[in-house]
Computed example of a mutant assay.
Amino acid sequence: MKARTLAPWLTGAIAVQRLLELRVARANERWARDRGAQEYGQGHYPLFFVLHPAWMLALLLEGRAATGRVNLWALLLFVLAQPLRMWVIRSLGRYWNTRILIIPGGKRLTHGPFRYLKHPNYAVVALELATAPLAVGAGRTALAFSVLNAALLMLIRIPAEERALAAYRNQS
């Protein structure tokens, strides 16, 4: 199969998945706020709402311009990342959302994928940001957005989460 043929389908599937997940995230956010959750890191939140749609657009455009065949290994890795993504979301349950919300009385998870990684969701997203574009011959998109995502995570998001958790532990 030609990469340019798969690119619109893959981008569309990712967009639908993300929109459905946003509905879950919003419901979970309301649930958390109803329980007195305090939000941290609001200032950087819009950066992710620019990054992800821009990534999908670049994936579509560069993928549609690709002349090669689908990279089956990259596609397989992307597909295998999806159960990992669901494992993270299911493990977090009502606590999963797209914001940094700390609920009084809540505890840091140590089961599921959190047994192995402190931030498994970010590892899955990093894998997706690289493999989906590589599957459709969009190497520049894979590189550029992997670097941008890593910078946002390592320099801003993860430190903000760690500060929020530390502040919560100090209050308890």
Rank of each mutant, 00 (worst) to 15 (best):
A32I: 01
W87C: 12
A32T: 00
V79Y: 07
N97K: 09
W9I: 08
V24R: 08
M1H: 10
F145P: 06
R4K: 03
A138S: 08
E21P: 10
K2R: 05
R90G: 03
P120G: 08
H44W: 14
I102Q: 04
V50Y: 01
Y116S: 08
Q171C: 08
T11L: 01
N71G: 00
Q82V: 12
V70H: 12
T110W: 05
I89C: 09
T98W: 03
A3L: 13
R157I: 04
A58V: 02
L155Y: 02
G106P: 04
L84T: 01
E39V: 04
L10K: 05
V88P: 13
P8T: 01
V70M: 14
T131D: 07
L76G: 15
N170S: 12
A150H: 09
W96T: 06
A126G: 11
G12F: 06
L60I: 04
L47E: 09
A160Q: 15
L153M: 15
A142W: 06
L101I: 05
I103P: 11
Q38L: 15
L60S: 11
N71H: 14
P8C: 03
L20S: 09
P159E: 06
G93M: 13
H52R: 08
A65M: 10
R115T: 14
L6C: 04
R85P: 07
A66S: 15
M86R: 06
A65F: 05
G105V: 08
L59Y: 02
L60E: 06
L101W: 10
R169H: 11
H52S: 03
L101T: 11
A13P: 02
A164C: 07
G112H: 13
Y40I: 02
A167D: 11
F48D: 00
K118G: 13
G41Q: 14
L92F: 05
W55K: 01
N149E: 01
A37K: 13
R94V: 08
F78Q: 07
L84D: 00
W9D: 00
A130C: 14
R4T: 09
L51Y: 00
A81K: 07
N28W: 08
L152H: 09
A138T: 10
F48H: 00
H111F: 05
E29W: 03
L155S: 08
R30M: 08
R99N: 13
R108Q: 13
L22I: 06
P83G: 10
R115M: 11
P46I: 09
L101H: 12
W55A: 12
G137C: 12
I14N: 02
A32Q: 15
L127S: 06
T67M: 13
D34L: 00
M56A: 11
W9V: 04
A167I: 02
L10A: 10
V88H: 12
L77V: 08
R4V: 11
R157A: 12
P53D: 00
V124T: 05
R94P: 02
G68C: 01
A58I: 07
Y168G: 13
